[in-house]
Simulated scan of single mutants.
Amino acid sequence: MGLLKGLRVLIVEDEGAVALLIEDMLEDLGCLVVGSISRLAQAKDVSCLIQADVAILDVNLAGELVFPVAEILRDRAIPFIFSTGYGARGLHGEYALCPVLRKPYSQSDLEQTIDAALKAFNP
Rank of each mutant, 00 (worst) to 15 (best):
M1V: 06
G2M: 13
L3P: 00
L3G: 03
K5H: 08
R8S: 14
R8Q: 15
R8Y: 09
R8P: 07
R8K: 15
V9Q: 10
V9D: 07
L10Y: 01
L10C: 01
I11A: 10
V12H: 12
V12P: 12
E13Q: 15
E15V: 12
E15T: 10
G16F: 13
V18K: 05
A19G: 13
A19H: 05
L20K: 11
L20N: 07
I22Q: 15
E23N: 14
E23A: 13
D24Y: 05
M25E: 03
L26Q: 11
L26S: 12
L26A: 11
D28C: 08
G30Y: 03
G30A: 01
C31D: 08
C31P: 09
L32F: 06
L32G: 02
V34M: 13
S36C: 09
S36V: 03
I37N: 05
S38T: 03
S38W: 07
R39A: 08
A41F: 03
A41Q: 11
Q42R: 13
K44I: 14
K44R: 14
D45Q: 14
V46S: 01
V46C: 02
V46P: 02
A52C: 09
A52Y: 02
D53F: 06
I56M: 12
I56S: 07
I56A: 05
L57V: 08
L57H: 09
D58W: 08
V59P: 00
L61R: 05
A62Y: 03
G63C: 13
E64Q: 14
E64P: 04
L65T: 13
V66N: 05
V66R: 06
F67C: 00
A70I: 11
E71R: 15
E71P: 05
E71Y: 07
I72M: 07
L73K: 06
L73W: 08
L73Y: 09
R74E: 14
D75C: 03
R76G: 12
A77W: 01
A77R: 08
I81Y: 05
S83V: 05
T84A: 09
G85N: 12
G85L: 12
G85W: 12
Y86T: 07
G87M: 04
A88W: 06
A88G: 06
R89W: 05
L91R: 04
E94T: 11
E94D: 13
E94W: 03
Y95T: 00
Y95S: 04
A96N: 00
A96P: 01
A96Q: 06
L97D: 11
L97V: 02
L97P: 00
L97Y: 04
L97T: 09
C98V: 00
V100F: 10
L101V: 12
R102E: 15
R102C: 13
R102Q: 15
K103S: 02
K103Q: 02
K103T: 00
Y105Q: 04
Y105D: 04
S106Y: 03
S106T: 15
S108D: 14
S108F: 09
D109M: 11
L110Y: 08
L110P: 04
E111Q: 15
T113N: 04
D115V: 04
D115M: 03
A116V: 06
A117R: 00
L118P: 03
L118I: 06
L118A: 03
K119F: 01
F121P: 00
F121T: 00
F121R: 01
N122I: 10
P123A: 12
P123C: 07
P123G: 13
